[in-house]
C-alpha cells in the first residue's frame, strides 16, 4: 500500500474526517476521502445538518445516527458524472449565502421548524438557467434535492433499518399474485 492509499484508507475508515493538507494554506483543508469533490469539513457538517433536518432522530434513529452524510458524499463522489458533481458542489458552495439572503439568517441559526420550511422551498426551486442568478438557484435546488434523495436512500438502505426496523428478507417467500390490499396488516412504525 503506498502512502496515498494508506492515507485514503485511514480517511475512509474514519468516515472521511482525516485531513490531508492541501497546498493552499489560505483555504480550509479538503476532505481526502472524496477525491473527486472538493469538500471541506465545514461543508460536510452542513450536509450533515441538512440530512438531520430531512430525517431527524426521534423514537428511532435518524439520518445522523446512521452515517448518512458519508453515504451522500460517497454516492456523489463515485456515482455522479463530473457535470453533476460540479452542479452539486456549486450548489453546496452557494447554499450558505442563499440561506442568509432568503431566510434572513444563517442556516445554523434557524429553528428546526424554520429549517424544514426553508429546505422544503429550497428542494423545490428551479432557476432560469439563462441568467447567472437563475443558474445559481438551480444549482442550490439540485444540491438540496440530491441531498434529500441520498438521505432517503442511505437511511432506508442502512443496516439499522434493514435489520432492526423493517428487516430485509433474503428469502421473500412464495409468490402470491392476487393479494387483497384490504387484508394486509402492517404494524405501524413510529419514527
Amino acid at each position: 500500500m503506498n502512502r496515498r492509499h494508506a492515507l485514503r484508507h485511514i480517511a475512509l475508515i474514519s468516515g472521511g474526517l482525516a485531513l490531508i493538507p492541501s497546498c493552499d494554506f489560505s483555504k480550509e483543508d479538503i476532505l481526502a476521502a472524496y477525491e473527486n469533490l472538493k469538500i471541506t469539513a465545514t461543508q460536510k457538517a452542513l450536509i450533515a445538518s441538512i440530512s438531520d433536518s430531512i430525517i431527524p432522530a426521534g423514537e428511532i434513529k435518524g439520518a445522523l445516527d446512521l452515517a448518512v452524510p458519508d453515504f451522500i458524499l460517497v454516492m456523489v463522489n463515485d456515482c455522479f458524472t463530473k457535470e453533476n458533481q460540479e452542479k452539486f458542489t456549486a450548489g453546496l458552495e452557494a447554499f450558505p449565502e442563499y440561506a442568509e439572503k432568503t431566510a434572513g439568517k444563517k442556516f445554523a441559526d434557524l429553528s428546526s421548524k424554520e429549517k424544514e420550511t426553508f429546505l422544503l422551498q429550497g428542494i423545490a426551486i428551479t432557476g432560469d438557467e439563462n441568467t447567472s442568478e437563475g443558474k445559481l438557484l438551480a444549482q442550490v435546488g439540485y444540491f438540496l434535492s440530491s441531498v434529500k434523495r441520498f438521505t432517503i436512500q442511505g437511511y432506508m438502505a442502512s443496516e439499522y433499518i434493514q435489520t432492526e426496523i423493517i428487516p430485509y428478507s433474503l428469502i421473500p417467500g412464495e409468490y402470491n399474485g392476487a393479494v387483497l390490499i384490504a387484508d394486509i396488516q402492517n404494524t405501524r412504525v413510529n419514527g
Binding site: I55, S112, I123, I152, Y155, M156, N190, G191
Partner: peptide, 9 residues
C-alpha cells in the same frame, strides 16, 4: 421533510 417524511418512509 422531517418527521412527516420519516413516518411516510
Amino acid at each position: 421533510i422531517g418527521m412527516d417524511l420519516k413516518n411516510n418512509l
